[in-house]
């Protein structure tokens, strides 16, 4: 069974730590070139097509700012 996923990042609360990026098995996410109002580069889906909705990024996020959605395809 294959899955396709997508994440939503609360960019204002993201601290740009990069722990999610290091733990994404599909290299979907990256830290943005832009920063939020606190000056942190926030996490975003650089390659949304690659996301499988595995939740790994969200599980390791210290600030719980990632929400994960997943569909069967």
């Amino acid at each position: 069974m294959a899955f396709k996923g997508a994440i939503v990042v609360d960019t204002e609360k993201c601290k740009g730590c990069g722990v999610c990026v290091a733990n994404c098995p599909t290299q979907t996410i990256a830290l943005a070139k832009k920063v939020n109002s606190k000056g942190y580069p926030y996490c975003y889906m650089e390659f949304p097509d690659k996301c499988t909705g595995c939740s790994n990024c969200a599980v390791v996020c210290p600030d719980s700012v990632i929400t994960v959605y997943r569909v069967k395809i």
């Binding site: 996923g5 949304p48 599980v59 990632i66 929400t67 994960v68 959605y69 997943r70 569909v71």
Partner: peptide, 18 residues
């Protein structure tokens, strides 16, 4: 499938604890 169609409450799998 488009990201907009995936991001939908019925496809929610993980988020911040209540």
């Amino acid at each position: 499938m488009d990201v907009k169609d995936i991001i939908n409450p019925e496809n929610f799998v993980y988020g911040k604890s209540k």
